[in-house]
Nucleic acid binder design. Structure first.
Lengths: 195, 195
DNA sequence: CGTCTATTTGAATGTACTCAAAAGCGGTGG
DNA sequence: CCACCGCTTTTGAGTACATTCAAATAGACG
């Protein structure tokens, strides 16, 4: 895959694009480098962009009144990330989005996204499909949170994303799974003693 | 509002429709009466429809291995409901969807929805918007589940949906909020003693 | 009414958290 | 290349929020 057209290949998985359309799509994105620990979204600020990760990893999280961090989503290669609520309603963010590693992403500005959708129904279709899939994914996550114990949630994540589980810092994974980092540490020890 | 064009008014909140388009939309739906305790979706069966509730209320829930029920979503007037994962991927359901009261809904068949979207980008836009909003909503729910205690989740629901909270059976609300019906009963008693 | 379903209450229990301290790890500069 | 610093993970002890199970009570429906 050429370094420059990841997003084209990605979108073509969902809708067919002519070469001209592919170019139009491509030019709506801006390639950005994001250093480890750099923030691209912060609470109280507007959310002008969504990000498609080409390389590296990012993490979205909220901080509650007690100062506890809760991971809302991760993004590695081929995934999208932003404060979704802030982005689609064009309101100020309530989340942080930060790079876990030095990363490269394609940044799409909200107004550019609107233009794409207005100019060509194929792009409208594309964004509809990824929103639908995102919704289905979030719903599966809600189901997991409601029906599984902490240990089962961890196992489930391991089964589905073994590579990602090894790449993420434990505190980030723990708070994504809805438990403390101390507790995940204990779960891991128990699991390793068994096997 | 005429009894027959709820869906038109609803869709027009998001995209403008000519009278002709409104008619086209309308005719894609089938009006159905659903009796209390009647199921419209069951695990292991296909999910050919999504439902827009005109009157009454429905509940989507899963049952885990231990036999516990967990409410995934409710729908009252003006809300949509189905097994979303089963519907968009056209796979067999994993949820039940059942009427909590005698209800009336507008039923949209998957293939009809595809036709609507293919024929007119406005419909594509509409479904994109409701998927985006659904996604944002699910994400807020995940955040609530991760950051709030059982009592706070209940209070939050009360603040946002006071009318719905009074309409729902307690067991359904409790399992939606991620707690047992016994515990919600105790929370309510505590709350009433204070005030 | 009588039956079935839903809610309440009590007592015991467990899963997961809090707080504190120690140990491990990684990057940076002298 | 080693020493140090900050960040992350581990471990221990005590605790709490919420569950489980059982039984009683209340409410809805035919």
């Amino acid at each position: 895959m050429s370094a420059e057209n990841e997003i084209i290949n990605y979108v073509r998985k969902f809708v067919p694009l002519s070469d001209e359309e592919a170019l139009e799509l491509q030019s709506a994105f801006k390639r950005v480098a994001i250093r480890k620990r750099q923030f691209v979204v912060q609470p109280g600020f507007p959310v002008p962009y969504r990000y498609y990760v080409v390389d590296g990893s990012l993490r979205a999280y909220v901080v509650n009144e007690e100062g506890q961090e809760h991971t809302i989503s991760f993004a590695v290669e081929d995934w999208w990330i932003t404060d979704y609520n802030g982005y689609i309603y064009q309101q100020n963010a309530t989340m942080f989005v930060v790079a876990l590693e030095d990363s490269v992403a394609l940044r799409l500005e909200f107004s550019k996204e609107q233009e794409l959708k207005a100019r060509n129904p194929k792009f409208e279709t594309f964004f509809r499909i990824i929103a639908e899939r995102g919704l289905a994914y979030q719903q599966r996550r809600v189901i997991n949170n409601l029906t599984l114990s902490a240990e089962q949630r961890y196992q489930d994540f391991l089964d589905k994303y073994p590579l990602i589980a090894r790449r993420l810092p434990q505190y980030a994974l723990a708070s994504f799974l809805g438990m403390t980092t101390e507790y995940l540490s204990r779960l891991r020890r128990r699991a390793s003693r068994k096997s």
